[in-house]
C-alpha cells in the first residue's frame, strides 16, 4: 500500500525544500540508521572514558562509568518499549470505549 509513495514519483506534491531530503525516505537509509547510532555510541564511550565527571556517579570511575549512561539509556528504552506490549494489551480498548460520541441524555452525569 505504501510502496508507491516511498518513491518520489509525484514530485509535484513535494515541497521544494523537501526535495533535497527525499533520501530520508529511502529504505536503505532507514535500515542502516542503526549503524550511525552505534558509531556515535562508541565515540561517546571513548570520549567519556577520558573525561570523567567531577561528581562521579555512585558507581566508581573507569569503563563502567564511561558506559553507564549508555547502558541506562539502552536498558531504559528497551524496558519502555517492551513494556508497551503487555501494557497495550492490558490498557487498550476500542476507541469508542467511553462512548462519548453517543448522544445519551444522561451525559450530564457521565461527566462527573
Amino acid at each position: 500500500m505504501h510502496k508507491p509513495h516511498d518513491t518520489p514519483e509525484n514530485l509535484d506534491d513535494i515541497h521544494p525544500v523537501s526535495k533535497k531530503f527525499l533520501w530520508l525516505a529511502n529504505p536503505k537509509v532507514k535500515r542502516n540508521f542503526i549503524w550511525f547510532t552505534v558509531a556515535c555510541l562508541i565515540l561517546t564511550v571513548i570520549i567519556g572514558y577520558f573525561f570523567p565527571a567531577k561528581h562521579p556517579a555512585p558507581w566508581e570511575g573507569g569503563l563502567l562509568y564511561a558506559i553507564s549512561f549508555g547502558v541506562i539509556g539502552f536498558v531504559a528504552y528497551s524496558i519502555v518499549v517492551f513494556s508497551a506490549w503487555p501494557l497495550f494489551r492490558a490498557l487498550s480498548r476500542p476507541e469508542d470505549y467511553y462512548g462519548e460520541d453517543d448522544d445519551d441524555t444522561l451525559s450530564g452525569e457521565d461527566d462527573v
Binding site: 451525559s107 450530564g108 452525569e109 461527566d111 462527573v112
Partner: peptide, 18 residues
C-alpha cells in the same frame, strides 16, 4: 461546586457544542 459544574454546565455547553 463539582456537582454544580456537572449539572449546570452541560446545559449551555451542549447547546453550543452538540
Amino acid at each position: 461546586s463539582l456537582l454544580n459544574v456537572a449539572y449546570l454546565m452541560p446545559v449551555a455547553i451542549r447547546g453550543f457544542l452538540k
